[in-house]
Design a protein around this nucleic acid. Structure first.
Lengths: 355, 355
DNA sequence: AACTTTCATACAATCGATTGCAGAGTATAT
DNA sequence: ATATACTCTGCAATCGATTGTATGAAAGTT
């Protein structure tokens, strides 16, 4: 920088000001031009490390992503990274497990690196890390999963709506006994989708006894399979399953295959997320589409705002969910209908008419 | 740091040395203990930014990942990140397109941030960015894709072996007319897998006329479909297809479905990568398994070595590939066998016996 | 006892920018 | 013509650690 100053015939402080868009206006344009030219001929670039040391800012943001279930989080990461990089930010990613202490350490390390903000894709409904970020006064945005209380801005999908769409679809096809594979209830997705399922079935007048659920430990295919077994064992009469997540739905596929049942002939299945390739499984999965990439982008925007305008209020952005109908859903089998649901059915229709 | 020095009753330089594992031995153990204790009571942590400014090192590494085909690169990223973070490194990811100038700019930015090294998952067979990194003297390792010449360490899958396994499998099933959906030939994967295909078919004595290939523009399902159409149109007699990539194979599935052909009855298909969920498509895809996560880990190890021991020689790590047989491959239809390959077959067996 | 060697610590320069403050120079008002 | 305001640039302290060199004390040698 000293060399540039010399070549341009000005003081280093002038160089600094000329090269920083925010302070450029303090320098007479002709001098700016000289500085820029000198910088170019010397191949000079500002040193972000030195700037960071002095200013406390870094143009870096951290993203914490769960180390499992990369299917869902990759597009979020890609969307956020894409958007942030156009704004001059670089992104440090950390894949983390669910250990709260480890998460706090990691966040501490990122803060030491002077990150300007954090995007958390990891939070549970009452998250110590979120509390920590608030205490530190670090701009932070949650993505995909939110907390119970709105303390930080978050970008999430409309989980309740998604379940409503799924249930509407099944009811329209004639299903009256619908099971739910719920996600872990410490995650907002698991919790809210379960609540959405309950509300949606209730809105159609289906009693709780006809709409059982079982909770999966994790969002994995294996957990989906285990949970499906429990659900079907306890409630063999159900004709459809709404899963909180595509992987859980695929776990259900595995169990149906084991048991010699056929989807959608014997049981209809609806997933959630519309992750890549679920249109190619057999049968192609009916599911709720979420734009994870868009989620990442919006989280990036929100974070940028939070960074650049101090004390911006916490905002909750809820993205719409959309039903994608494929071939894993169909009307329930006649025989089953007759056997289990025919009496109940007219009742449902009546109650629906009332509402 | 000054406060810690005061509390411990030593000079800041002693604190610095006591807290740095590399220089800790210069300080008498008793003093180290005092310093550590003082640091703890003050809740003090070294400032990586200041250290970075002074030393030129940063404990940061950059990873450049193509902005498409995240399916393959996510586990690489996860593996590398996991391994590097246990070594105290943080990872800056950048998703980049194929524009060489943009890539160079990005790399320049990372260098300005003082990254200690770079992992490139983006290189083509003769890559300007790789040349740039060499010129800069920046420790760099390539992953998944390598260059034509070994100038930098690389961790790749055994592409040639993979194709040999795929072809062996098909020949064993009785196929003699096998097509290849090749990947872009500027990528080592596309190039080497095509060569592997050619060598493997030749090793079974299959003439080139019976083993046509078409090159896909990109590794996408759509390109796979287009390329399959071209291949089948020009060579309707083939009974099996080896794809350079699972997505290309799935594109082939799409075309077969369009054309009313059935896999594997009419045409067998082998993929490459064994990406998530290809065991659930219909029919479950026979493919070549690559451990992408392990690739990421090994790349991380190599990079760490390159960083810590200056001028370590370029090493090429080739990970084994493995055939995973599922249901997309079967013996060719009798009728087709008789019509096209029966005469050729005895010849093949004879030539195989000779070799 | 004098001298060398060794070891631990202290001193101070340095990495490269940013920024509050002061001062020089110019334009405007009275 | 003088005072006032205003614009631009220079000065120098600062961010927080690292590290080559100097210093002093302790240990070892003859």
């Amino acid at each position: 920088m000293k060399q540039v100053a010399e070549l341009a015939g000005v003081h280093v402080s002038t160089v600094s000001r000329a090269l920083n868009p925010a302070t450029e206006s303090m320098v007479v344009p002709e001098a700016v031009a000289r500085v820029v030219k000198a910088a170019k001929t010397l191949g000079y670039r500002l040193d972000p490390v030195a700037a960071s040391l002095r200013t406390g800012r870094s143009k870096l943001v951290g993203i914490l992503v769960p180390d499992i279930a990369t299917n869902v989080f990759t597009p979020i990461l890609a969307g956020a990274t894409e958007r942030l990089s156009t704004q001059g930010y670089s992104v440090i990613v950390a894949y983390v497990g669910s250990d709260a202490k480890a998460q706090l350490d990691l966040a501490g390390g990122l803060i030491a690196r002077r990150v300007d903000g954090l995007i958390l894709a990891t939070v549970v409904r009452d998250d110590p890390l979120a509390a920590f970020c608030i205490a530190e006064g670090l701009p932070t945005v949650l993505v995909n999963r939110a907390e119970k209380d709105v303390r930080l801005s978050a970008v999430v999908s409309d989980d309740m709506l998604g379940m409503q769409l799924a249930v509407d679809h099944l009811v329209e096809l004639g299903h009256r006994k619908i099971g739910h594979l719920a996600g872990p209830s410490q995650h907002s997705t698991g919790f809210l989708r379960r609540r959405g399922f309950t509300q949606a079935t209730a809105s159609h007048g289906l009693p709780a006894a006809q709409t059982p659920f079982e909770i999966a430990e994790t969002y994995t295919r294996e957990a989906g399979a285990d949970t499906t077994r429990r659900l079907l064992h306890a409630h063999p009469e159900i004709t459809a399953i709404v899963a909180a997540n595509d992987l859980l739905a695929l776990g259900a596929y595995d169990v149906l295959r084991e048991e010699g049942l056929e989807c959608p002939r014997d049981i209809s299945i609806v997933g959630h997320n519309d992750m890549p390739l679920v249109d190619m499984v057999q049968p192609p999965l009916t599911t709720i589409r979420i734009s994870h990439k868009e989620m990442g982008r919006q989280a990036a925007d929100l974070l940028q705002q939070a960074i650049e305008t101090l004390d911006s209020p916490a905002r909750n952005v809820v993205l719409p969910a959309k039903l994608i109908v494929r071939n894993s859903t169909a009307p329930p089998r006649k025989s089953i209908l007759k056997r289990f649901t025919a009496p109940a059915r007219s009742q449902q229709i009546a109650s629906k008419a009332r509402s």
